[in-house]
């Protein structure tokens, strides 16, 4: 009697969430795949002129803006994620091997997680200012001439370097805290055994810490890759709505998600379908990456 099925009752409890999910999550997923085949769709009145199999995807793939967005996104994904995963792993290991001040350091390192990306991005833009920024001041100590990182007319490489520093800074907090909680759950016996065998620190790190932490490293890597594929707010924080160094001009630092919103803000017929096409391309890229990651983890991760 106690474990009977409560069909109706259960669905009443689920109803509020279910209604919202159907309207704002499930239906939109399906609809994105419908929009991408529509021709001349206008969101203002919901009319469209016809159907097309590959028209919207082709339009997006043929635009220069898409390839700019693709280049920027891929650089963010494949440069910032490995760097921040490795740095945060080291920081977590170091943090785990001290006792005094551990809590203080942990709190400081967590701060980037609870900040507003727009606010901090704007502060980073000031730090990277050519004339009165802190970064060039530090470079000046090594007698490097002032570099225009984020001002009007800054080159792509420099703007990207500055953006990368911000994105890495921004992403470390979450990774450190997850790695640290992973390290703290590793059984001390392994380390005791290693000490009896007088294994070197490096060996302990490579043969015990990394393998035992590998599920967490895999998890962090997957989620960070997906997060990096969706980067956009950080770019707005640093470069403004126009996604361009100096705030003027247009879209040099655009990302795939930036492209989605750029198209979504347009009112000409078909713009919404282009946004859908870009979002679907993003979806398949993250899906591919997730599957690839899962395949690799299955082979290499020790559970």
């Amino acid at each position: 009697m106690l474990e009977q099925k409560h069909n109706i009752k259960a669905w009443i409890y689920l109803l509020p969430a279910l209604v919202l999910l159907v309207v704002f999550t499930f239906y939109p997923i399906v609809n994105a795949f419908i929009l991408v085949f529509m021709e001349g769709y206008r969101y203002i009145d919901g009319t469209w002129t016809g159907w097309t199999l590959t028209g919207n995807i082709r339009y997006v793939l043929n635009s220069q803006l898409f390839w700019d967005a693709m280049r920027n996104t891929l650089v963010i994904v494949f440069v910032s994620v490995p760097i921040s995963v490795i740095i945060s792993l080291f920081i977590a290991v170091w943090l785990n091997s001290i006792k005094r001040l551990q809590g203080t350091f942990q709190t400081i390192f967590f701060l980037p997680y609870v900040t507003n990306s727009i606010a901090i991005g704007m502060a980073f833009a000031v730090i990277f200012n050519r004339d009165f920024g802190l970064f060039n001041l530090i470079l000046g100590l090594f007698s490097i001439d002032p570099i225009n990182w984020v001002g009007t007319g800054a080159s792509w490489g420099r703007a990207m370097t500055a953006l990368m520093v911000f994105i890495v800074w921004n992403g470390l907090a979450f990774k450190i805290i997850v790695f640290l909680s992973g390290l703290q759950s590793i059984d001390k016996q392994y380390y005791d055994a290693a000490r009896i065998d007088s294994a070197s620190k490096r060996r302990v790190f490579l043969k015990i810490t990394v393998p035992l932490l590998s599920p967490m490293i895999a998890f962090i890597t997957i989620t960070s890759f997906i997060g990096a594929f969706k980067e956009y707010t950080a770019v707005v924080g640093m470069f403004g709505e126009n996604l361009n160094p100096g705030g003027g001009g247009r879209n040099m630092m655009i990302t795939i998600v930036g492209l989605v919103y750029e198209s979504l803000g347009q009112v000409y017929p078909g713009a919404t379908s282009e946004a859908a096409a870009a979002a679907i391309i993003l979806f398949f890229m993250t899906l591919l990456l997730t599957l690839f990651n899962m395949y690799i983890s299955k082979k290499r991760v020790h559970y």
Binding site: E3, H6, N31, K230
Partner: peptide, 30 residues
């Protein structure tokens, strides 16, 4: 609670979590 389609619905939710939010935003904007 126990109810019919619980496992199925649960699985559907897990799968949805893997989908980037930008997919929803477009239609939500409409």
């Amino acid at each position: 609670l126990n109810f019919r389609f619980k496992e199925l619905f649960f699985l559907l939710l897990i799968m949805t979590m893997m989908i980037p939010g930008e997919m929803f935003v477009i239609t939500n904007f409409i």
